[in-house]
């Protein structure tokens, strides 16, 4: 370089150039290899975090472990599965004094679920996302004793897409995985493979509703609301 008086490249210059070329080749090779593998896998580019409701056990970690406050996780309601029960297990606290709509009898700690009478004795339940904190109490109640029409999902208008999802780290069943970013429907029915970085191979694998009638996420031995054992 310039320090060199008679403009002949020194040994250092040559070595430096060699290292530079080697570095470029290594980077290029790495990029080509990984991109080639990616192209072979699927046409997808970006991925986002999502909860697999088939694996979710509603432990409540979603509400407390997200880097956001309140969490990016919300309870989603699938109406065709809902029984429209008057005594809704996702709405009423099982140890409530009376089945009234008073706040102390509701299961939701923030009163995010509201109901509207459709016709006797059916009620339509709606989740207010501005109030929902993703604690999953209603999901546990509905899944354990009801039809399981409520389930937890990560909302991508809130999620900041951390490289390592803080809730995924805390999830006891590894229910939080990456799925293709363009996928806006609920969870694909085909269960994903290994952690990390499971991948779906194409749109054929997607089924537009996760909880088709009769599908439910697993029930556990201990009720997370009452602490009771047994189903």
């Amino acid at each position: 370089m310039a320090e060199n008086r008679n403009d002949r490249p020194t040994r250092r210059d040559v070595l430096g150039r060699g290292a530079r070329v080697a570095g470029c080749v290594a980077l290029g090779g790495l990029a080509a290899g990984l991109l080639g593998k990616r192209a072979a896998e699927a046409g997808e580019t970006e991925t986002v975090w999502q909860i697999d409701p088939y694996t979710c056990v509603r432990c409540g970690n979603c509400a407390t472990n997200c880097v956001l406050t309140p969490s990016a996780v919300k309870a989603i309601h699938s109406y065709p599965i809902c029984g429209y029960c008057e005594l809704c297990f996702g709405y009423f606290d099982p140890v409530a004094s009376a089945p009234t709509t008073a706040a102390e009898d509701q299961l939701c700690p923030t009163g995010a679920i509201s109901r509207k009478r459709v016709e006797e004795p059916y009620y339509e339940y709606t989740v207010d996302y501005d109030l929902c904190v993703g604690c999953g109490k209603c999901v546990e109640g509905c899944t354990r004793r009801g039809n399981g029409s409520l389930y937890l999902q990560i909302m991508h208008d809130r999620c900041v897409n951390c490289n390592e999802c803080a809730i995924a780290v805390a999830c006891p069943t590894q229910a939080i995985r990456r799925i293709p970013a363009h996928w806006t429907g609920p969870w694909p029915e085909k269960a994903p493979a290994d952690w990390p970085g499971e991948w779906f191979r194409g749109p054929d694998d997607y089924v537009p509703y996760i909880f088709k009638r009769g599908h439910q996420s697993p029930r556990r031995d201990v009720d997370h609301i009452t602490g009771e054992e047994g189903q």
Binding site: Y79, P80, C85, I154, H156, T184
Partner: peptide, 24 residues
Amino acid sequence: ELFPPPDFSGTDYEFPPTQVYAAR
């Protein structure tokens, strides 16, 4: 089914769309 979903076919009730998340 634990609580058979009601049959709303005779009424003018329509299922609200299942609220899904926006794509990133």
